[in-house]
């Protein structure tokens, strides 16, 4: 038996947790790190050709530079959550996971508003008179919708801490 932060586990159970954590974090790695870190390359593959340099810059600007790093932190938090489930650390790790997820969502939505400058090369030879085009997308409500799970996760984390203390 292995005692881990107030929870007794068999070796098999621990191994299962580690495997589950590895699987979840592998999925999380793909979604939260690999996808944003290789967004342009993946877009190239999706269209079956080379993304024009102008479009590449545009796609890159959609991804906050800090997003892959926060994604890595999120992957780590997912792994820890899977491993420490039911232990004394589960509550704090759940709160940490929720906070990192919230940060990820905020970075993903650029704080609720994305402004991008569309390169002239992308507009079929450009706009007349050398005009420039910029597009702004405001989506604070959608961002808040994605933040709801994080909020619920934080509440859940506090309840887990409370439940651990009552034992």
């Amino acid at each position: 038996m292995v005692k881990m932060l107030g929870l007794e586990l068999t070796g098999a159970s621990l191994a299962l947790r580690l495997i589950l954590g590895a699987l979840l974090s592998a999925g999380g790695f793909l979604i939260f790190y690999y996808l944003p870190a290789n967004f342009v390359e993946l877009a190239s593959s999706a269209i079956g050709g080379e993304v024009p340099p102008a479009a590449s810059g545009l796609l890159s600007s959609l991804i906050d530079p800090a997003l892959p790093l926060v994604g890595l932190a999120l992957v780590a938090a997912i792994f820890l959550c899977a491993v420490f489930r039911g232990t004394k650390a589960y509550g704090p790790v759940t709160i940490a996971l929720s906070l990192v997820y919230a940060l990820y969502v905020v970075l993903l939505f650029h704080g609720g508003a994305i402004s991008i400058s569309v390169p002239a090369d992308l507009l079929g030879g450009g706009l007349p008179f050398g005009a420039s085009l910029s597009v702004s997308v405001d989506m604070p409500v959608l961002m808040v919708l994605f933040l709801v799970p994080a909020l619920l996760g934080i509440v859940k984390g506090f309840l887990l801490i409370l439940m651990t203390r009552r034992r």
Binding site: A131, S132, L133, S134, S136, V137, M139, L142
Partner: peptide
């Protein structure tokens, strides 16, 4: 949910 605005200047 979403408000989109585009601005062109030249």
């Amino acid at each position: 949910f979403i408000s989109i605005s585009a601005q062109a200047s030249g």
